[in-house]
Design a protein around this nucleic acid. Structure first.
Lengths: 122, 122
DNA sequence: CTAATTGTTATACGAATGGTATAACATATG
DNA sequence: CATATGTTATACCATTCGTATAACAATTAG
């Protein structure tokens, strides 16, 4: 699989897992309609407990990235709600932009980062 | 003061505190060289424990936003290291951009958010 | 049909984190 | 000298994170 967990990170495992699934979807390594490994299989693969994977899947489902089909497992299915997505993103970005301004980052430097990351992923 | 804590938030108090200090510096409500209230005074003001404020101040100091002067208390003093700031910001932004791409946000919409937030703060 | 695998849920445990509560110390201020 | 400061230490409680079993219903494979 495409998952790499850093067990020495201060970031929770289920958060790392969630972020890497974001990344895999964004970079089309996983596509809409694809199934993810079962919680047990993935847990076994990356060497963590089943519940840790289940927690990642559950948050992804709640945030509208997965749907669970009894016969197909966890299927990538992204709910798109532009308004809500933008509102959430603004809330996430706000403290980061504030931090950046404090550190003297210009909006051009910020936008360059966005461009770089988009180029890296798409 | 300019601080408002949401005690029902799932975000840790010391994180909310830190973010609002970011915001206050970014919007020039607090300026380089200004002193922040003492940990005890601010704790008393917003109704939390001294140690919670101390934790926020400590992380702000470690991240180069404050310096502590024995005679002047916690003084706003932003260490600027462009390279390091950009590297850190890229790491913070990466999972957010991935999330945005999944939800169908274009890079223009992303940059618009950045512009909005900059306009709001500066 | 049977056995195995699936998602889901429940419970329990240990470790770490978040927040509170006192207390103490050295330094600086009035 | 008395007060307020930043800092540190300890203790306690609740919550979270991760792990460990276990069980259940439903679906799949043989």
């Amino acid at each position: 699989m495409f998952i790499e967990i850093d067990f020495n990170s201060d970031e929770a495992i289920y958060i790392q897992l969630r972020n890497q699934i974001f990344l895999a979807i964004a970079t089309s390594q996983i596509k809409e309609g694809d199934s993810l490994p079962s919680v047990r299989a993935l847990a076994d693969d990356i060497g963590v407990n089943m519940h840790t994977v289940n927690k990642a899947y559950t948050t992804l489902r709640q945030d509208g990235f997965l749907k669970v089909d009894r016969r197909r497992g966890a299927v990538v299915s992204v709910d798109v709600d532009k308004m809500q997505s933008i509102d959430k993103m603004r809330a996430y970005l706000k403290p980061l932009v504030a931090r950046g301004i404090c550190k003297g980052l210009s909006r051009e430097e910020f936008k360059q980062l966005i461009d770089d990351l988009y180029d890296e992923m798409k």
